[in-house]
Amino acid sequence: NQASVVANTLIPINTALTLVMMRSEVVTPVGIPAEDIPRLVSMTVNRAVPLGTTLMPDMVKGYA
């Protein structure tokens, strides 16, 4: 099973992502692959992402 990116904290809308905000976890449904974490750093989220939420491609500006 592939690990996905999961919010390690509440990420407010329009926040630039940092490494400490994200962790990898095997979850269903599958979200952004964990190997993309380095690429996500400094990208911003377009909605509030609660703790434990899987990051989906449409949640990160410029990812999809």
Rank of each mutant, 00 (worst) to 15 (best):
E35R: 05
T28S: 14
A48V: 15
I13R: 08
P50D: 14
T44D: 04
A16I: 11
S42N: 14
N8C: 07
V27R: 09
D36F: 10
V45A: 04
V6W: 02
G31R: 02
A34E: 10
L51C: 14
L55C: 01
L10F: 13
L10V: 12
T53N: 14
E25R: 06
P33R: 11
P12Y: 07
A7W: 02
I11M: 04
L51G: 11
V27Q: 04
Q2S: 12
V27N: 03
D36A: 10
L51H: 13
R47H: 14
V45K: 00
I37D: 00
L55G: 01
L51S: 12
A64N: 15
I13A: 11
N8T: 10
S42Y: 10
T53V: 14
N1S: 14
P50N: 09
P12L: 11
N1T: 15
V60Q: 01
R23G: 05
R39W: 07
V45D: 00
V30G: 08
M21H: 11
Y63M: 05
T44Q: 15
R39F: 10
L55M: 13
E25L: 06
T15W: 09
V41S: 04
R39I: 11
I11N: 02
M43G: 03
N46L: 14
L55P: 00
V26G: 05
N46S: 15
D58S: 12
A64M: 15
V6G: 01
L55Q: 02
D36H: 12
R23P: 01
P33H: 07
R47P: 03
I37Y: 03
T53S: 14
Q2P: 15
T53E: 11
L40R: 00
T15A: 08
R47T: 14
I32V: 07
A48E: 11
M22D: 00
M43D: 03
I11F: 02
L17I: 13
V45C: 05
V49H: 02
M21Y: 06
Y63I: 04
T44F: 09
G31V: 02
V41I: 12
P38E: 08
V30E: 15
A48D: 14
A64G: 11
M59L: 06
V41Y: 06
S24D: 07
G52D: 14
